[in-house]
Design a protein around this nucleic acid. Sequence first.
DNA 1: CGTGTTTGTCATCTA
DNA 2: TCTAGATGACAAACA
Length: 419
Amino acid sequence: MSDLSSCTLQIHRASSEKFAATADFKGSLTEQNLGRARHDKMSPFPPQQGWTRGTFLPLHNPLTGGDPGSQGEMELTWQEILSISELQGLDIPVESCYDTTLCGHTQQMVPASGYGPCTGMVDNLVSSYSHPVPMYERLHPETMPVPCTIYGYTGTLISSSLDPPGPASLSGCEGAPEMILGRDLAGICGTQVPCKPQEDLESDSGLSLNYSDGESLEAEGLERAEYTPLYPMDHTTVYTMLPPVPEIPFPNPHMEHSLEKGRNPRELAGSRDERRALAMKIPFPVEKIINLPVDDFNELVSRFPLTEQQLALIRDIRRRGKNKVAAQNCRKRKLETLVHLEQELDDLSRERQRLLRARGEFNRTLMLTKQKLGALYHQVFCMLRDEAGNTYSPEKYMLQLTAEGEVFLVPRNKQGNSD
DNA sequence: CGTGTTTGTCATCTA
DNA sequence: TCTAGATGACAAACA
């Protein structure tokens, strides 16, 4: 703020009615006092964060079983699962309770036929899967060293048919793996609780699913829970070797519920496709169907003589699987966008408060400046004298400041002409 | 039992 | 024209 008392004013009388004056306060009022709005740099719009593309899908974690059941059934079950694993060359998740290292009787589970579990599987499992599997490995397990594994079909079988974990789980490993296939549980639940139809659990819109799934199999008179022997899969021959495998339903909703406690219940929905793939004898795992790049996928599909129904199912599985991941990513992005917008809202709210405070401060400064200008005006005006030494009447004359900094005394009725 | 959340699925659009 | 991805809408399961 300029000190008005320090202003020097030189007023010129340009004519009989007009004085010219120069003042050194030019600019001081317009720039200094009126002030320039602080050019506070607006906080730049936060760059959109890159979306987190990696969606870590939880691995299936088939729970440990409870009642060991009969040794014979267990062995048979184990053989079934191991047969599938060999059939399909699938992965086994580390969380799997079927890690045979936990079971002392692994060897006796190995079928002597030669198509049992791969030897060395235990070591591989322990070394390769003793930590959470990275996303890349999960998405492209075919690129990783894959031991003889069970994942996909067998994961479904296991997760959908195991007893709930119980105190006997660990001790049960001493005798046999804690697993019961659908057949077994079907028998169990048949005597305890009526089996809940699968579609009660996993309803399907039926859209574009014109393949023979479990329901149609059932309609065709096949017992859904009927035990179907599984044969070792030679990838080149299993397609023709496999007998019809009906979709294996969840034998008992309560069992399933207790089984999957602590897990995402929706993970089971993925297994619906796995069961369907199994029922349709799709000779490769659902995981591959979904995650393989399109070229690899096409190459894989072309390697097998597939029926139209199988192809339709495979395409359906792939579409659903892709869309599931896309939906997960989409929701994640939506949440991140929401968080980002809330942050932006907070930032803008703070900026608004800051600008309001600045505006109030500027208004106060402007008012003060106007008061000082008025006082200066009055002081200057009172100092002016005409030729007779009389003061000018403020009603008849006024001072005008030009852009050049000159001050003129002009009659009020001519003020408009002076511009 | 009503309600909110999570998740899978489908339809549709877009690149 | 086909395909994959994105997203709104809906439904089911669950807390």
